[in-house]
């Protein structure tokens, strides 16, 4: 069999369909928390799952393309600093998924903790470092404003991912069947 180079077909499709789902969730399924203007972001949970299953390249691309397309469609302009930050988040979760084996069908308590620690780090890096710095460098926005926005986003995303991201990974792993395990029962 010939060796295939570059992104595999499955990864390409994962990016394509993963992005489509990301955008739909972003647009339609945001849960208001009760606090003004803050919503639990379900798309971020989907992103964690895709990154955990398909790895950092797919995770990063889904976040980057999904966020950019969504910006373009919903706001008419692309806010590049946040798009890049989302991409960074996807890559980091993908790396964590690869090292922690988050999608191999055996999601232990240890892995749950590992996943949540890494999502904490990924969210902080993305929304409290990359996004505000990007805002300052690219858009020359005032630091006080962008760091406050960054802090709020970090908090919301960490909580959303802790609840929904973990739930989705738990359910996904539960349905992954182990080798030679399916048989008819009386």
């Amino acid at each position: 069999m010939e060796k295939k180079k570059g992104l595999s077909t499955r990864s390409v499709v994962a990016v394509g369909i993963g992005t489509a789902v990301f955008i739909i969730l972003f647009k339609f399924l945001a849960i208001p928390t009760g606090i003004a203007n803050t919503q639990i972001n379900v798309a971020q949970a989907w992103l964690s799952l895709v990154a955990a299953i398909f790895g950092p390249v797919v995770g990063g691309l889904v976040a980057f393309i999904g966020h950019a397309l969504n910006d373009a469609i919903s706001y008419g302009s692309i806010w590049w600093s946040w798009v890049i930050a989302d991409g960074v988040f996807g890559v980091l979760i993908g790396i964590a998924g690869k090292y922690l084996h988050l999608a191999d069908g055996n999601f232990t308590t240890k892995k749950i903790i590992g996943f949540n620690l890494s999502q904490l780090v990924a969210n902080v890096v993305a929304w409290l470092v990359v996004a505000p710095l990007g805002d300052i460098l690219i858009y020359s926005e005032p630091a006080a404003k962008v760091f406050t926005q960054g802090a709020v986003s970090t908090l919301v995303n960490v909580i959303s991912t802790a609840i929904l991201g973990t739930a989705v990974l738990v359910i996904y792993n539960r349905t992954k069947v182990k080798k030679n395990s399916l048989e008819h029962e009386a």
Binding site: G6, L7, S11, V12, V13, V15, G16, I17, T19, A20, I23, I24, L61, I65, G66, L69
Partner: peptide, 13 residues
């Protein structure tokens, strides 16, 4: 491959 991934996203949205 990335360009086609974008096309697929638009196709399946």
């Amino acid at each position: 491959r990335v360009a086609y991934a974008v096309a697929l996203a638009l196709r399946y949205i």
